[in-house]
């Protein structure tokens, strides 16, 4: 057994599962395949994969339920594979603890990038639990948690406390999509229910840190789902 990362691929379509496993194997990952939710749960328990690719449409049970069951006892990064246009499904999956989602149809490079991000994020979280990061640098953007300073291209940016809270929250989950609901609850608490405020704050942040707010580099919008801070520019 080599030291390659183990990926559990849960997918019932043979053609898709074949092509994904080919790509993954070529990229030095060990692939375990599961075709049903039941198998998936059993394999997760027995093989302790480093990452799970989960297709939400499974023959025996709802992918969301597989996700729920795994999340009860395991924090392994899970990337959900879903069809385009089902934002609600994606939001639900993310709120239930999925790390990321990828929309069918997707290219190989996109898939590999998502896997890398998820794995890296997971490792970082584990390391972070030992020591707190004091700053993060993404391209020209620097967030210094200790001094509470945000800099773009070495120029200090003035953010309101709320804006700072948002940007810190996104940067601590860099690479990961944070849903609107999650952000609202984290920043304003559980009793606020309209996301206009969030949009306004995001628009302000973008006008402060992005060169062109219509072509953002650092904070991307996932339409209908939420926001993601990129981990590399």
């Amino acid at each position: 057994m080599n030291n390659n990362l183990v990926i559990l691929l849960i997918e019932d379509e043979l053609a898709i599962s074949n092509f994904i496993s080919t790509i993954l194997t070529h990229n030095k990952y060990n692939v375990i395949k599961a075709e049903t939710g039941k198998d998936a749960l059993a394999l997760t328990a027995s093989h302790c994969p480093d990452l799970i690719l989960l297709d939400l449409g499974l023959p025996d049970m709802d992918g969301i339920n597989v996700l729920k069951s795994i999340r009860i006892w395991n924090s392994v990064p899970i990337i959900v594979v879903s069809a385009r246009g089902h934002e609600r499904e994606k939001v639900e999956a993310l709120d239930l603890g999925a790390d990321d989602y990828i929309t069918k149809p997707f290219g190989t490079s996109e898939l590999l990038a998502r896997i890398r991000t998820a794995v890296r994020h997971n490792q970082k979280v584990r390391e972070d639990s030992h020591r707190e990061l004091d700053k993060i640098i993404i391209g020209g953007l620097l967030i210094d948690y200790e001094k509470r300073i945000v800099k773009v291209e070495d120029k200090e940016i003035h953010l309101t406390p709320i804006e700072y809270k948002i940007i810190v929250l996104l940067s601590k989950n860099v690479g990961k999509v944070l849903t609107h609901d999650y952000l609202m609850k984290e920043i304003w608490g559980p009793y606020i229910n309209e996301n206009q405020t969030l949009r306004v704050n995001m628009a302000n942040i973008r006008r402060k840190i992005e060169a062109n707010p219509a072509e953002p580099k650092y904070i991307l919008t996932e339409v209908g789902v939420g926001y993601r801070m990129v981990d590399e520019v």
Binding site: R199, M202, A203, P213, E215
Partner: peptide
């Protein structure tokens, strides 16, 4: 929705 976000996406 913020239109600029949609345009950006």
């Amino acid at each position: 929705e913020a239109v600029e976000e949609i345009v950006a996406a």
